Simulated assay, not measured.
Amino acid sequence: MGCCRDLCILILFAIFNLFGSLHALEAITGTQFIVDDENGSLVSSDGNSKLGFFSPCKSQARYVGIWFNKISEQTIVWVANRKTPVRNSAGIFKIGGDGNLAVFCCNQSSPHWSTNVSVPAQTSAAKLSDSGNLVLVAKEIIIWQSFDYPIDTILPGMKFGWNWKTGLNRILTSWKSIDDPTPGNSLQELTLTAYIRSFCTRTQLYNLSLSLFILN
């Protein structure tokens, strides 16, 4: 009897995983999007990371976030609309008319949150990588990625600090509370300091000192 019961449990578990994988999207496109229900999600190819709508702890507000898919306790590592939650369960996460990823509510034309980048072609798509990085791609080029906008967690492969080419500063900010992912009072960042002192004549450079700390 014990063996039969264990076998039934394994079969049910396999069926549950099968249906879960069938409902989860592999990419967000102009025709495929995520709605706020129990089946609306985007899962990485290895199944380790998952993106979908969630409510933190006792809050009723709805956010789009990324968490570890194979850990029983939901551990949020990134939040899209942390400052602008959806106040009901009518949220949609999709590619907008301008090619950007955006969080909408009901039939509202203005998004609660958007990647807000210049999209070279309106054939963009979004995927969740195995590392937990949400990327927006157009013409096979990454034009936006969540790794450039961390919340309070650094994941393997994520860079922290300044990108001197773009001027982007990747910083960490705490949640306001366990119920509210709005930026809190705790902040961690790397500061950029440049000090150049020189004294020149017509033909000679007498002194040049440079103290520069840049993290690319």
Rank of each mutant, 00 (worst) to 15 (best):
N48S: 14
N169H: 15
N69L: 04
I9V: 15
A138M: 01
I142F: 02
G91I: 03
F213Q: 11
G20A: 07
N116L: 06
T166Y: 04
C57D: 13
P111T: 13
A125N: 10
E73G: 06
A121N: 12
P85E: 03
S129E: 15
K70R: 13
V43Y: 01
P181H: 00
C8L: 13
M1R: 08
F93Y: 05
A61Q: 15
L10A: 12
S21L: 10
Y63R: 00
S59V: 05
G2K: 03
L25K: 10
S44I: 04
Y195I: 09
A126N: 02
A138K: 00
A80L: 02
R82C: 02
T31R: 13
A90V: 06
I66F: 03
S129C: 15
L42G: 03
T31V: 15
R82Y: 04
I11W: 11
G40M: 02
N216G: 06
F54Q: 08
S41C: 09
T153I: 12
E26M: 07
G97F: 09
L42T: 04
L25Q: 07
S186K: 12
Q60T: 15
L7S: 14
V137D: 01
E140C: 09
L12T: 09
L18G: 06
D46K: 04
N107H: 13
D46I: 03
G161D: 01
D37W: 11
I151V: 14
R82F: 01
G65P: 01
L12Q: 15
S174M: 08
T31N: 10
Y149Q: 10
V77E: 00
F93E: 00
V77H: 01
G30W: 02
N116F: 04
V119Y: 01
S124E: 00
V137E: 07
A138L: 01
S129K: 08
D180L: 04
I15H: 05
N39R: 09
S109M: 13
V79T: 08
G132T: 05
S131G: 09
E26Y: 10
I71H: 13
W175E: 00
L25N: 07
A14P: 00
D130Y: 03
I76G: 02
I141T: 14
I9C: 12
C4P: 00
S59N: 06
K58I: 10
S49F: 13
D36Y: 02
L18S: 07
L187S: 11
F54K: 08
N69P: 11
T173L: 08
W175L: 02
D148E: 08
R5G: 03
E140T: 12
D46M: 04
N116I: 02
K127G: 05
V35A: 12
S72Q: 14
